[in-house]
Amino acid sequence: MRGLASSLLVLVAVAAAGGVAARETVGKTAPAYAPPPETSKFVAAPGVEAAQRYCLTCHSADYVSTQPPHMPAAFWQNEVTKMRNAYGATIPDDAAKAITDYLVATYTEPTRGGR
């Protein structure tokens, strides 16, 4: 009886150590990261170069194409201002105007998945 109890204790200890070892092993694995390639693109229209140059520094084009349709021009003006003043995007004045004009002209109508 005593012998059995000792054996059981050893078994439990081994199991516990095994559990810790397994966890440590799993925990040490640095996961590889290979996301799907970025495919969203700005709609080709006058001003798209400025949008590509500045907006894409921080986010993919789908952040724009998924915004609500039918928003007034002030919506896009506010967004460009927010990106510059709040989020710290370094966009020169002339490029900011070109981007705003491009967004108002291009993304007021529904994008219909045009990404």
Binding site: P31, A32, Y33, A34, P35, P36, T39, S65, T66, Q67, P68, P69, H70, P110, T111, R112, G113, R115
Partner: peptide, 17 residues
């Protein structure tokens, strides 16, 4: 893709790591 029921709601379905 899946289309969420609001304007510009189309969302691609992709598999990330």
């Amino acid at each position: 893709a899946v289309t969420l029921p609001f304007g510009n709601g189309e969302r691609p379905i992709k598999t990330y790591p």
